[in-house]
Nucleic acid binder design. Structure first.
Length: 458
DNA sequence: CGAATTTGACCCGCGC
DNA sequence: GCGCGGGTCAAATTCG
């Protein structure tokens, strides 16, 4: 029955005199009924649409979840692979021989294995991407963090070994070579944060406390690296009247990481921050970039010092620092760069036995280097970013880049992101028994900069 | 008043 | 063994 017939039948039963009124009433009720049903239909349609959207969303989430699960499983397999890595030099040699056709200098990657790289290379071959392949060869080998390992040609290492005392790591080489690169970045004094292998390594290896030094133009007392630091000492080191401040990571009470902050005597605008140790706790997001950087640089250092004795390192512009690939650049915007270009600070490595140090120079001012320092010349640059490769064909992780840019690069790029202005006031200038301390030229009174937060740079 | 910083003293490794 | 210098400790001081 239609809506119209229903109304008409009612009016027909009642008398003619009332017909007009009844018709009017019926028209009104018909209208409201129509409107009501229309609304219901609209609601039904919108609900159906919503359900459809939800289903679509659900499908997307399902696919994302399966992707995540897949990634997780591959990572797990990857991790198991690391756990069963070769334990001695012979194994390394055997592994190296198997890979002798490949360019196997240590390199750094974040999140991709060397095997994957090599697989990718094959794909490039198939696609006749020879240029890309050439560059991708630079990325083989060492990876940051969990999958950090050597895959270098041991014979090449031996051949290239430099006998000079400063570079003499013959003894440690054999020990180092079986170990992940990153974790020798710890002190024997420090709490155990590695596995048994690392502990053995630390016991066997007299060389300890690899350091990563970062030079950056900075007008505040310390750099914003995302971590929380507490100052525990200050001293004036020989050869630099500017006091050196000692900080300890306070994110975790047991964290062994320390840093030293000192102004460069030659150029007071340059702040030299030296990191030592590895965090044994989860880091704030803003701190991960710096931690990755220092950790990676430490890896580079240990790989270099223990295995290649500098020979694997070439000029920065040749993009091969034992497989670490950097490029100098004047461009602030990492994202605009080609995927396989990277940004090299002036980099030097001190192979001091007690404190092997890698220096990343993010300033335009030439670095002062010690006699035992090998400096890789690079052009001057007004602003520089540091980045580590993920894969030649894949742009560096955007999150990493953004994180690094915003938290570290920002300052290095000439956009200070520090929480306190630099002042040269508030000096105490008291002399202690050591005869050189407490000038406090650069130390703010009641400085809170050791609490390095999420200073946003806009 | 609690927390962070300052700073004098001390420890330790290294070179002579 | 001694002196020097780097690094750390911990009491005193400062600040919010």
């Amino acid at each position: 029955m239609s809506r119209g017939s229903f109304g008409n039948s009612l009016s027909t039963r009642r008398g003619r005199g009332k017909a007009t009124l009844t018709t009017t009433m019926n028209t009104n009720s018909r209208d409201s009924s129509l409107t009501y049903k229309k609304n219901q239909e609209d609601q039904l349609n919108s609900t159906k649409a919503q359900i459809g959207e939800a289903k679509e969303e659900n499908e997307k989430l399902k696919s994302m979840l399966s992707k995540i699960m897949k990634d997780y499983q591959s990572l797990q397999m990857h991790f198991q692979g690391i756990s069963h890595k070769p334990q001695n030099s012979k194994d390394i040699i055997a592994t190296s021989i198997e890979q002798e056709e490949e360019v196997d200098l240590v390199s750094l990657s974040l999140g991709r294995s060397s095997r994957e790289f090599k697989q990718d290379e094959k794909e490039y071959d198939q696609n006749e991407c020879k240029d890309i392949k050439k560059q991708s060869k630079l990325f083989d080998g060492l990876e940051l963090g969990l999958d950090c390992r050597f895959s270098l040609d041991f014979t090449e290492v031996t051949k290239n070994y430099d006998d000079s005392p400063e570079n003499s790591f013959e003894e440690s080489k054999k020990e180092h070579i079986t170990e992940p690169c990153v974790q020798n970045y710890t002190s024997s004094k420090m709490p155990r944060i590695c596995g048994d292998e690392d502990e053995d390594f630390l016991q066997q290896n007299p060389q300890k406390k690899a350091r990563v030094s970062i030079r950056a133009v900075c007008d505040t007392t310390t750099m914003n690296d995302g971590c929380q630091w507490r100052k525990y000492g200050q001293k004036i080191a020989k050869g630099n009247p500017c006091p050196r401040a000692y900080y300890r990571c306070t994110v975790s009470p047991s964290c062994p990481v320390r840093k030293q902050v000192q102004r460069c005597f030659e150029d007071m605008s340059i702040l030299i921050t030296t990191y030592e140790g590895t965090h044994n706790h989860p880091l704030p997001f803003s701190a991960t970039a710096m931690a990755s950087t220092t950790s990676a640089a430490a890896s580079m250092l240990s790989c270099t010092s223990s295995s290649t004795s500098q020979q694997g390192i070439t000029d920065a512009n040749n993009n091969n620092l034992n497989g670490f690939n950097f490029t100098t650049s004047n461009c602030n915007n990492l994202a605009t760069h080609a995927p396989n270009t990277f940004y090299l600070p002036k980099t030097s490595i001190s192979t001091s036995q007690t404190h092997p140090t890698i220096t990343l120079d993010f300033t335009t001012v030439p670095a002062t280097t010690s006699s035992s320092t090998h400096t890789f010349s690079s052009q001057r640059y007004s602003s520089t970013s540091l980045n580590f490769s993920t894969l030649p064909s894949t742009p560096p992780s955007s999150s990493f880049i953004n994180s690094f840019k915003s938290q570290v690069g920002a300052s290095y790029l000439g956009r200070p992101c520090f929480s306190q202005p630099f002042t040269s006031n508030n000096t105490r200038n008291t002399e202690d028994s050591d005869g050189a301390r407490n000038s406090n030229m650069w130390i703010q009174k009641r400085s809170k900069v050791s609490h390095l937060g999420f200073d946003s740079v806009t």
